[in-house]
Design a protein around this nucleic acid. Structure first.
Length: 702
RNA sequence: GGUGAUGUAGCUCAGUCGGUUAGAGCAUCGGAUUCAUAAUCCGGGGGUCGGUGGUUCAAGUCCACCCAUCACCA
């Protein structure tokens, strides 16, 4: 097998929000696949970048009183931290706000223009006279023209599902300034996707290769039958003010963020080539023999399977070998929800001390390479990880290691074991090639099932041979040594098969086994005779239900007590290279609860006895609360941005007194103070509550 | 509304080209075991394969319609 050249991307996360478990499905999936390809000895590069342009970035930076550059630099740091925390190993993680991306955006644009595929048209759009900018559809609100529902966005109605143009809204207002928008015309630049050349090319491109069948169906839906012309031109420009790249020769016009997002793949790779001394053209010239794959969410298939190949083709670059779309993440069968605590950020998962490889394994055990949604069932997560990883796989090493260490001085048998091994565990040395095929197809679930079936088989072997009995019988040392040596070798082979999913665990297993980093081919042979292994230290702990509860509690509280690091706005005004998946159901705040539910919350008047800054915390203040007869409590509250500790001391406020104590990075938090804020973060500000005069510490609030 | 997908055991999922008695893991129940951080092994119970109708010698699998869930409609 000759080495392949493979370039892999994940969708670019938008630099406007925190990475959450939904994002991680994609990055973990891609990471597993690229690690697998590398283990196979292929030249495989995994690049990604932050998607940094567009109106939401501009407005958020403005709201925070910083420049867009400062905002995207900060988020780049947060994203990088989260990814490395989950062992997502990019070869390069760049930014679309880069010279390289600008270069290729301008290059592609000018080539498309030269090919006659760019057209300028004047369009009428709503304009905010106060803010002095054109308004994206999602920044316009008004009354639905169809059902009359109030406060609907400019593109579709959440109440009746109708889709319409913003100009159809009754009584439209700007969501930014509240002003009444005016219609104003402006020149926009369009990519002529409706051009027969694009149609013809896309029909051909979508038919060739091996697109997922669901994706092919979807594309056919968009393309229509032969002869139909269903594709319309794509508006690739936006008017100033806009954070992005100005279009060459068009002052005041900027490339729409979605134009430069996929180009960011090229930008990141170009940046990497410079560092690594690789030849960019080997991967991107039209006749390149390298393979190019994009892992994406199913919601952005349109951009990656229509616009993107059409752009590349007509700008003289190679087109993607394939696009791998996956479904969305649900948690316990429902969309992720902040009120249920299932909108779980990557950061909170790590901060709560959960092992990232638990999640990597669980996702792997569920990913099958289709566009179906993937459910994180929390009970199943716990039992699956504990049973499969700890009970079956890790247990094999644990069962054999003690005997090897105590009885055989840490060394395996001195003869070649191959025959005995093959007799004991037939096919185990060949199985890696079968499992490789499942990885290649991205059917990780199947690969994991196969590996766990092997683990079952190995554990059966242990029970059949009963090393603990051999150990007690005189003259059975050689047999005991054989059995345990076979087990260590079997464990090593399973480790090879699991390494793409569990890189950190595999690394620790390699240390235990005293071997160089394992490659895929290592699964075909055994350890050398008399190989010495190191002392066994337990490789993975079990998940406890309590940890999951704490994780949910942490994410549930974060809505009020600790404003989350800027999360993606569920009602994002536009879609980005990274899908805005799993927007929480927005009706939940109005879901009625019973009086009994409410009475479960023990609200008390508290006097702020002390307030101080917390070393190293961006958002937290440490409060000591006096509850009168109920004693004092220590609470960490995410109100640093709004309050100076000195002004808080002596104030009375309201706290939740029966909240389960939560271990935070800086200590235990034994409750939560109540504060008002806009849950969508559109308007800033944080306001703690105060009782009227006369209330005393410890009084119940109901 | 249109389009596409999904629906199999309490839970999570396999099920190839239509072909024996529909499988696995987890959970549960019974037994064994004690090397392993209670992990492991053997066995049992548990199913109208969403529903109805059709094609066929034979349907979880193919077709039609219906129901439910999800997504997309740039």
């Amino acid at each position: 097998m000759s080495p392949r050249k493979i370039l892999v991307t994940s969708a670019l996360p938008y630099a406007n929000g925190a990475i959450h478990l939904g994002h991680l499905v994609e990055y973990i999936q891609t990471d597993i696949w690229t690690r697998f390809q590398k283990m196979r000895g292929h030249e495989c590069w995994y690049v990604c970048a932050d998607d940094t342009h567009g109106t939401p970035i501009m407005l958020r930076a403005e709201k925070e009183g910083i420049t867009p550059e400062q905002l995207i630099a900060r988020v780049h740091g947060e994203h990088s931290r989260d990814f490395s925390g989950f062992y997502v190993q990019f070869d390069n993680y760049h930014s679309t706000h880069s010279d390289e991306t600008r270069f290729y955006a301008e290059d592609i644009y000018s080539k498309l223009k030269a090919a006659g595929l760019i057209e300028v048209r004047s369009i009428e759009q709503f304009y905010d006279p106060v803010k002095q900018m054109f308004l994206p559809d999602r920044f316009i609100k008004g009354e639905c023209p169809k059902c009359g529902a109030k406060d609907q966005y400019g593109d579709s109605c959440e109440a009746c599902g109708a889709a319409y143009a913003p100009t159809d809204l009754k009584d439209p207002v700007s969501a930014i300034s509240g002003a009444k928008p005016e219609l104003k015309s402006s020149d926009h630049y369009f990519f002529k996707l409706s051009d027969p050349r694009c149609q013809t090319f896309l029909r051909e491109w979508t038919r060739q290769g091996s697109l997922q069948t669901e994706a092919a169906n979807k594309l056919h839906e968009w393309l229509g039958d032969e002869g139909e012309n269903k594709l319309t031109d794509w508006d690739i420009s936006r008017d100033a003010p806009y954070f992005g790249f100005e279009i060459p020769g068009a002052p005041g016009k900027y490339f729409y963020v979605w134009l430069d997002a996929p180009i960011g793949y090229m930008g990141s790779f170009k940046n990497f080539c410079a560092k690594k001394g690789l030849n960019f053209d080997d991967y991107w010239k039209p006749d390149s023999k390298a393979e190019l794959y994009h892992f994406i969410g199913k919601d952005i298939l349109y951009f990656h399977a229509l616009f993107w190949p059409a752009e590349l083709k007509h700008a003289g670059y190679r087109t993607p070998t394939n696009v791998f779309a996956h479904g969305f993440l649900t948690v316990d069968g429902a969309k992720m929800s902040k009120s249920r605590g299932t909108f779980i950020t990557a950061e909170s998962y790590l901060t709560q001390g959960l092992n990232p490889e638990w999640l990597r394994y669980y996702f792997a055990a569920k990913l099958n390479g289709t566009m179906e949604d993937l459910d994180l069932n929390l009970d199943d997560f716990v039992s699956r990880v504990n049973s499969d990883l700890v009970g079956k796989y890790i247990n094999i090493a644990s069962r054999a290691a003690g005997f090897i260490a105590k009885r055989f001085d840490g060394k395996l048998v001195t003869e070649h074991l191959t025959e005995k091994f093959d007799a004991a565990l037939p096919d185990l040395r060949e199985v890696a090639s079968e499992i490789a095929e499942y990885y290649e197809q991205r059917d990780f679930a199947r690969a994991m099932r196969r590996v766990m079936a092997l683990a079952d088989q190995i554990n059966q072997y242990v029970d059949q041979n009963k090393p603990w009995e051999l150990a007690k019988q005189a003259g059975q040392d050689a047999k005991l040594h054989d059995v345990c040596s076979i087990l260590i070798n079997a464990f090593r082979i399973l480790t090879v098969c699991l390494k793409p999913v569990l890189p950190k665990l595999a690394q620790r297993a390699e240390e235990f086994l005293n071997v160089a980093p394992l490659h895929w081919a290592d699964a075909a042979h055994l350890l050398p005779p008399a190989h010495a292994i190191n002392a066994y230290e337990h490789l993975m702990t079990r998940i406890e239900g309590k940890q999951i509860e704490a994780l949910l509690a942490a994410n549930r509280e974060s809505l009020a007590a600790v404003p989350p690091a800027p999360t993606s706005d569920p009602q994002s005004p536009q879609r980005h290279a990274q899908h805005q998946q799993n927007a929480e159901d927005k009706m939940q705040s109005t879901n009625p609860i019973s009086i009994d539910d409410f009475m479960k919350v023990d609200l008390r008047i508290a006097r702020i006895a002390n307030a101080e800054h917390v070393e190293g915390a961006e958002k937290l203040l440490k409060l000591t609360l006096d509850l009168g007869p109920l004693g004092t409590r220590q609470v960490f509250a995410g109100i640093k941005s709004a309050y100076d500790p000195a002004t808080l001391v002596g104030r009375f406020t309201v706290m939740v007194a029966n909240l389960a104590p939560r271990k935070m990075k800086f200590g235990m938090s034994e409750g939560m103070v109540l504060a008002a804020s806009d849950p969508e973060g559109k308007t800033g500000g944080l306001y703690i509550l105060s009782p009227d005069a006369g209330a005393t510490p410890g009084m119940q609030v109901k």
